[in-house]
Design a protein around this nucleic acid. Structure first.
Lengths: 229, 229
DNA sequence: CGACTAATTGATTTGCTTCAAATATCGTGG
DNA sequence: CCACGATATTTGAAGCAAATCAATTAGTCG
């Protein structure tokens, strides 16, 4: 297992400050897997029998409602885990996981993962904390969805993405993976039309610079002001 | 500690099938506390230093946004825990907890609770599962808030409440604690006006029977149909 | 160069909020 | 026991944010 993998595992909040030997143990038990852009890693409703950590690339978690409409629940970056809570609970996956770009993941069968938890009990403590962090995030998103207008929610979504997946460029902070107006709409409970109009207005005002599947934040403070007010 | 307490603890998913001696240990470490209706148990932003289980009554968890608008995140019934995730993460409470009716809770200081977890490791396993269940619930609510119309969301909220706090009456299933139009609005991201109009229409159609701070579900199937379509 | 996917942009509609006021219900103290 | 203040609910009217409808245009890729 190459050193790069261990450093990425170290970044995962689930494995955080475990000793290097433990990380090696964990990495060795996992199966690395290459993913092409658009590939579905697991499907909503599938039995949750695998735990995943992203090594490279970007993955989105999308929930589909009975009527076919979709909501993007989160974007995953390197070092983050997904599928794990469902697997540990012996529940079906509550959403699809789809590679947004070409990616590399490490996956474990849930029984192997439980064995790792037994050998490294710290993982158990972290898993509650990790679920807790996401719980709080989701609670905030619910409050936001309940009370804020669409433009604010789009501003927040773009800020969050720039935060977690920002790459500095001469023009500003660029979201470092391709994202469509449709996906931003599915993150914010809006429509691609409204997102398009909103980004167009922001581009006009010099707050953002957007193009096909690309968004650059030029004026973070202005966006933050949109999100707050 | 009276037997009634132990049976209630048994109902808590966190303590589920622990042996009776363990439950007695847990109950003995906790401080019982009587709450009057409307009393605030902890406040959003307070350091999370206590874990709580409800013994009797009903508690609501309410998040307030910077602009003062509120969102009701959940209603707690006997046997359910609250505040625990924040406490275990050494995080401030992300929301207020307020007794809706006269209630009785059992509370632990977080260090005592951690000690209980050490003595009864099963609690740790359960805590992840418990956080996971709520995680999934919240994800569903986000999808719903993102894509459904207000009437559907109100229908879902009423169904959920009838499910978790339903008391059978001659007329149908009554939500067994007082709930205002305002609170239903804060659960669904709507306004008390819209909730009032919606309930009035349902009452008219014989689907519900509502009064001041009371809601009775007379035709569950019809409500379910509203939620689905 | 097509075929496809993504984005834009105008016109129209609508579900829901907001504004405004009246009415109903409850608890409480005189 | 009734009056009165506080809380909760109803209902109408107006306004608006954002969805929907409807084309058109712009990139991208094989």
């Amino acid at each position: 297992m190459p050193i790069a993998d261990l450093n990425l595992l170290r970044r995962a909040e689930m494995f955080g400050s475990l000793p290097t030997e433990a990380l090696a143990d964990i990495a060795a038990a996992g199966l690395p897997r290459r993913l092409v852009a658009g590939e579905r890693i697991f499907a909503q409703g599938d039995p949750g029998v695998t735990c995943h950590t992203l090594m490279e690339g970007r993955v989105k978690i999308v929930q589909t409602l009975p009527d076919g409409t979709q909501a993007v629940l989160r974007f995953i970056g390197p070092g983050e885990m997904y599928g794990t809570v469902a697997a540990l609970m012996d529940q079906p996956f509550p959403a699809d996981a789809i590679a947004v770009t070409e990616s590399v993941e490490l996956r474990w069968g849930v029984s192997n993962f439980r064995e790792l938890m037994r050998r490294h009990p710290e993982i158990g403590v972290r898993s509650t904390a990790s679920a807790g962090t996401r719980l709080f995030d989701l609670q905030n998103r619910i409050s936001e969805l309940s009370t804020e207008r669409v433009e604010q929610r789009i501003a927040r979504a773009v800020l969050r993405l720039a935060e977690q997946a920002g790459r500095p460029t001469p023009q500003g902070t660029e979201i470092d993976f391709p994202i469509t107006r449709q996906e931003l709409a599915e993150m914010t409970g809006s429509t691609l039309h409204t997102v398009s109009r909103t980004l167009a207005a922001w581009d006009q005002a010099g707050v953002t610079a957007s193009a096909r599947r690309r968004v650059i934040v030029r004026d973070r403070a202005a966006l933050q002001a949109m999100a707050d007010h």
